[in-house]
């Protein structure tokens, strides 16, 4: 019985492989003859192929509708209507947020917390129920929980730009590393990579403070054009930046000012499948100033070699970056 199932799965895999192979730019008579022989080998082959073909053709015939549906998904508010109803319907502003959260699972079939994650090279725009919009950079994980008193986001790892809908009664907070970024309505970028936190403000005022009273660190009130960097060791530094530059990744542009090459490569490795390695530690420290347009990896690598005396060679794991 098990071998039968396995066999069916193999036939389905073969049928899928044939259908994929017949999509090549060049299809030869050899492909045709091999396909013919495969079909003739067992009736099950034709059955499996027709099944795969039906699905394949169905997608072909309504590709645009499916694309539109997928695009609508990306823009759809993540919180279910139930969450929203609860948020609006709850009365009595004295109820503590903690208590509200405790009640929530009992009231709703849907969980109140939504998690969003992006993979390598993936960017995603999400519209939250309150009208705020979040742009996620590659390899980012973020959870959203709206309580009556607060709009809470946890940026577990990654980078995101927040366009926060104004609501002074319901602050918007982003917890990242061991800091809380708190705003009323504004646009800002938060980056949390392995505990190195950066907050850049484009509009409005943003407060950054330690997550708990016992935690070390200071509270900051950031204004547009300011960037706060907090290293994983707790070193805090404030700088003036062009917010457009800091948020350039949203439109496929990475802007750097004296950024070590290792950090630039780490960013690129989140955008492309082919991973870049630097073997030379001195080279890794080379400061980079300039911008990188994220289109194709080969083009990016070519431009990088114009900015720096480096060249890339293929390696087992991807690309190895060497001094010229």
């Amino acid at each position: 019985m098990t071998s039968m199932v396995t066999n069916n799965e193999q036939v389905m895999a073969d049928a899928s492989a044939w259908l994929a192979r017949l999509q090549r730019a060049e299809v030869t008579e050899g492909d045709g003859l091999a396909f013919d022989a495969w079909l003739a080998a067992a009736p099950a082959h034709g059955v499996a192929y027709k099944r795969a073909l039906a699905v394949w053709q169905e997608f072909e015939s309504c590709a645009d509708e499916v694309l539109a549906e997928l695009a609508a998904d990306a823009a759809r508010p993540p919180a279910r209507s139930g969450t929203r109803r609860w948020v609006i319907g709850a009365g009595g502003s004295a109820i503590a947020a903690g208590l509200a959260v405790a009640i929530l699972p009992g009231l709703l079939a849907q969980p109140a917390t939504q998690t969003y994650a992006t993979g390598k090279g993936e960017h995603r725009k999400i519209a939250l129920a309150d009208g705020s919009v979040v742009d996620l950079n590659a390899e980012t994980r973020l959870t959203v929980r709206f309580t009556r008193a607060e709009r809470q986001v946890v940026l577990a790892d990654g980078q995101a730009i927040f366009d926060v809908a104004h609501n002074k009664d319901r602050p918007f907070t982003v917890a990242a590393a061991d800091r809380i970024v708190r705003v009323v309505g504004t646009q800002f970028d938060v980056r949390n990579r392995q505990g190195d936190l950066t907050v850049t403000v484009a509009a409005g005022k943003v407060q950054v403070r330690p997550a708990s009273a016992s935690a070390s660190g200071h509270a900051f009130l950031l204004t547009p054009g300011q960037r706060l960097e907090i290293g994983r060791t707790g070193v805090e530094s404030l700088a003036a930046v062009d917010p457009e530059e800091a948020m350039g990744w949203r439109s496929g542009r990475l802007v750097y000012r004296a950024e070590p090459l290792a950090n630039v490569v780490a960013d690129l490795n989140r955008q492309f499948v082919q991973q870049i390695e630097i073997s030379d530690p001195e080279l890794a420290k080379t400061p980079i100033t300039g911008f990188i347009v994220l289109d194709e990896q080969s083009a990016v690598m070519a431009r990088l070699s114009l900015m720096l005396p480096v060249r890339s060679i293929p390696s087992d794991r991807g690309l190895l970056l060497l001094r010229k």
Binding site: M12, A13, A15, S16, A17, L19, A20, R21, R51, A52, V55, W56, F59
Partner: peptide, 8 residues
């Protein structure tokens, strides 16, 4: 190929 198999 994997997508076709999965979707089918």
């Amino acid at each position: 190929q994997a997508a076709i198999r999965n979707l089918s």
